[in-house]
Design a protein around this nucleic acid. Structure first.
Length: 273
DNA sequence: AAAGTCCGCAACCGCGGTCTA
DNA sequence: CTAGACCGCGGTTGCGGACTT
């Protein structure tokens, strides 16, 4: 398909925006909205292409754009989400209110990427510990074999396990995701100690109501999961919304995490893959 | 103080997806 | 069904300020 260049018309301005241009764009959008970016600059009297206007508005002029430095929590969220989603900046931005994909992308490339090396090292250490922990406890722990697809969510209570039981995740529902997106981490680390998950939730929620959504991300990030993108998006979205709605506590968090991750697809509102 | 280098951020570019006539 | 128009996304660029020599 042949596409005309965005700014094919000569005379359209490029480069940094002036205050006057910003003011024109703001007042026009306040009065008329932005249903058609292509037509907007002409109607507003701006010598810019629609694309440039949209970018300026969404990344800078929009009233709900949060300016200033990123908080520690925001940075951690970006790191965890990037672990799950990769370079899907818009998907990451959707989970950080007031932040734009462009801003997050810049922060990642200028600050957070530099931390990736040390982050990966610490992640590798936790995986090593995890494997040692499993091999030590596996023979004494009750094992829960999960064959997918599971119709009914499985909770810790259902499996009559204490918080030291071991979950076999060898049979992850690979039919749910495209072949090229299937995770390999489960093939490598087939057993995950539930106590680690509980410890993680307990530590992070000791002083407040839990946000299972972010905990989920923290857990998966720290344990080294690499969820397939389609499932990661759906699960993360669902977990965050559900956690916010439910005002879950720690025990609910553990239960909920199980339901989400293990009973994937069986929770209300969780999209089918 | 001047020149050179580095770094952060805003903006641009090109592509793919979706919509519509 | 097809082609054109538009939108949104991710990668990249380049300017300007901060820092170093």
């Amino acid at each position: 398909m042949v596409r005309a260049p965005c700014c094919e018309k000569m005379g359209l301005k490029k480069g940094p925006w002036t205050q006057e241009e910003d003011q024109i764009l703001i007042s026009y959008i306040q009065q008329h909205g932005h249903s058609n970016w292509r037509a907007l600059p002409k109607q507003a009297g701006l010598l810019r292409c629609g694309k440039s206007c949209r970018l300026r508005w969404t990344n800078y002029l929009r009233p709900d754009v949060k300016r200033g430095n990123f908080s520690k929590e925001e940075e951690e969220t970006i790191i965890n989400l990037h672990e799950l989603l990769g370079n899907r900046w818009s998907a990451i931005a959707a989970r950080l209110p007031g932040r734009t994909d462009n801003e997050i992308k810049n922060v990642w490339h200028t600050h957070l990427k530099k931390r990736l090396k040390s982050y990966q090292i610490s992640k590798g250490q936790s995986l090593t510990l995890l494997k040692e922990h499993d091999s030590h406890d596996a023979s004494e722990s009750k094992s829960m074999d999960l064959s997918f697809p599971i119709q009914t969510p499985v909770s810790p209570q259902d499996s009559s396990s204490e918080h030291s039981s071991v979950i076999n995740l060898t049979a992850f529902p690979t039919n749910m995701v495209p072949k090229d997106e299937q995770m390999d981490v489960f093939e490598t680390f087939s057993q995950i100690d539930e106590s680690l998950l509980f410890d993680e939730l307990s530590t992070e929620n000791s002083n407040s109501d839990s946000n299972v959504g972010s905990d989920f991300l923290g857990i998966t990030g720290k344990l080294g999961f690499q969820l397939p993108s389609s499932q990661a998006i759906a699960t993360t979205t669902c977990s965050m919304e559900h956690a916010n709605e439910s005002n879950l506590n720690i025990d609910d968090g553990v239960d909920f995490w199980y339901n989400l991750f293990i009973g994937a697809g069986s929770l209300p509102g969780l999209p089918e893959f």
